[in-house]
Design a protein around this nucleic acid. Sequence first.
DNA 1: AATGAATGAGGCTTCATTCAT
DNA 2: CATGAATGAAGCCTCATTCAT
Lengths: 181, 181, 181, 181
Amino acid sequence: MTKKESILSAALHLFVDRGEQATSMKLIAGEAECGIGTMYNYFPSKERLINDLYLNIKISYSNYILEALDSDNSIKHQIIHTWKRALEFALAHPRELKYIELFCQSPILEDCVKTETLNKFLPLWEIYETGKEDGIIKDLDTLKLITFVKGAITATVMNQSEMSPEDMDAVVQMGWDAIKK
Amino acid sequence: MTKKESILSAALHLFVDRGEQATSMKLIAGEAECGIGTMYNYFPSKERLINDLYLNIKISYSNYILEALDSDNSIKHQIIHTWKRALEFALAHPRELKYIELFCQSPILEDCVKTETLNKFLPLWEIYETGKEDGIIKDLDTLKLITFVKGAITATVMNQSEMSPEDMDAVVQMGWDAIKK
Amino acid sequence: MTKKESILSAALHLFVDRGEQATSMKLIAGEAECGIGTMYNYFPSKERLINDLYLNIKISYSNYILEALDSDNSIKHQIIHTWKRALEFALAHPRELKYIELFCQSPILEDCVKTETLNKFLPLWEIYETGKEDGIIKDLDTLKLITFVKGAITATVMNQSEMSPEDMDAVVQMGWDAIKK
Amino acid sequence: MTKKESILSAALHLFVDRGEQATSMKLIAGEAECGIGTMYNYFPSKERLINDLYLNIKISYSNYILEALDSDNSIKHQIIHTWKRALEFALAHPRELKYIELFCQSPILEDCVKTETLNKFLPLWEIYETGKEDGIIKDLDTLKLITFVKGAITATVMNQSEMSPEDMDAVVQMGWDAIKK
DNA sequence: AATGAATGAGGCTTCATTCAT
DNA sequence: CATGAATGAAGCCTCATTCAT
């Protein structure tokens, strides 16, 4: 693990456990086992560290989910697969998910970061659009469809640290029942 | 509006717009048009102000939703009515909803406050239990059912400041489709 | 006990037990069982309260000691009697003595109060002067003689909350041996 | 002078001249010519600064006095020598003496510090015990003997910034006359 | 590149004092 | 006279950031 990674890792742990504000740069340096000054060689400010960490995780998250997209499969299969990937990611990286959910509304997050992370998920939109055209899913505003299911799944995952395959299937089923026509 | 209310109101506005940490006691005093010391006549610390505000809103919220419970109606009607009440509350008090959603995970929130607010929603659980017994809704863990729909509805409402009656009906329909058997 | 006296009494207790700075006006009002504003009807400021309290006690103290002066008695008898009176006062009013000893150097004490209280003890000086003229006590600077014995007796009394008559006699004897020729 | 020493020195000056309470951390930092934060690198709180300063001085003081103890000399010589050392220290370091005398009763002083400084003077007790066994000094409680003379000498020294050798001899003589048999 | 002592702005909180009731 | 809510200056302390080593 490079020094930069160990700093990001330490920051993630502390931010999630204690909150961004209760986590001083000194504390992060201690956890990352480096000097305070060292951190400033990699991140010019605490704000940048927070934004970089957020961006890092969001990119991993979107990459993981988007790997589910295989246009050879049916729309239903693709949509459900993105949900399963999201659940898997959350269970494998609970801290990472908690961080992006807790601080996605933080006023410290720069708009460009919010926009950039939002764009990462654009490919998802198209599937839902196609689904609607095919008459498979409800003919509602795509943003509403996605928001609804994303909110449901995220809430579910934030509330449980463990899920059996059956649990996952049940959640996915609820999601599909919600949006299917 | 009493002085205490104006302080709570000012705090709510600023917390939601700028974040808890970026909001100093001085700033709140300015918005509430009172001296800094005055705030400490009503709240012994910033921490208590935050907790009291949270508790206040959560109680209003639960009261508003629970008024929907009328055992003369069908289970389906009752459940859907709670969702509509939640949507109504959120649209009428967007800042209040945003506050409780943004800071419900804040490490500054005392456990007793979390517990107390949780208990307020216990009556809801029973309806879902009955619904399961009657074979109307899916036979899943009640916590999961509630978490799923609550997450979905909250996410929806946090993303839109306005909703037409049709929008509301559409969301409610998705919710019901998700949990119905 | 008049309201003014109860305020002074409360202040004395709290000042000695917790220190002047750790004692707020609110605390004194609580102990004196009156409103904060009430105190300001009797003492225009905390500083005045402190000075008045100091002056009050010092006057009681000097009055008590000076009653020992009876020019019909021998110089030795008079001097020793002042010491005994000082010991008696200290044992009867330990808090009062502690207060004037602890805070006699406080920068908050006004010079006029210091001077005034000093003057109260002037009659004592004359006895020592006479004692020196009579060749009974050592021919040293009067201030030094008084300072020496006063320091010794005060230190003794601050260190013990109780003294038997024998204890008192022993201390008095040491004092006399110290200054006698 | 190290930074820590300059902070302690500045604190001593200001505490003695203005009182502990009237001396803000900002004022000390100004006098020590360092930033406020710097002080907190050496002392975690004002309270600890006060205690450390007290402990520092008390140790210097006791070390200086105890150097007077040479068991080859007579008891009388040893006792008198400790007094002379105490006088010398006080005259050489008037501020230091004033500090430990003014604030020895401060409620801010931790008990462990009081105990620790008390223990430093234990060796003195033994000389007085021996003196009593030898029938040289009065057969009184050792604590009373020490308290009496210590109080007398301290009061003397607090009242005069300068003393000639004759003055010192006179004070020492009074002390010895007080306790000798 | 790595370090951490130094810095001071700014946050939370206290409290002497005022004043309207 | 009695009261105590209101006030804001000032205190202690934290912490993001800098810079000399």
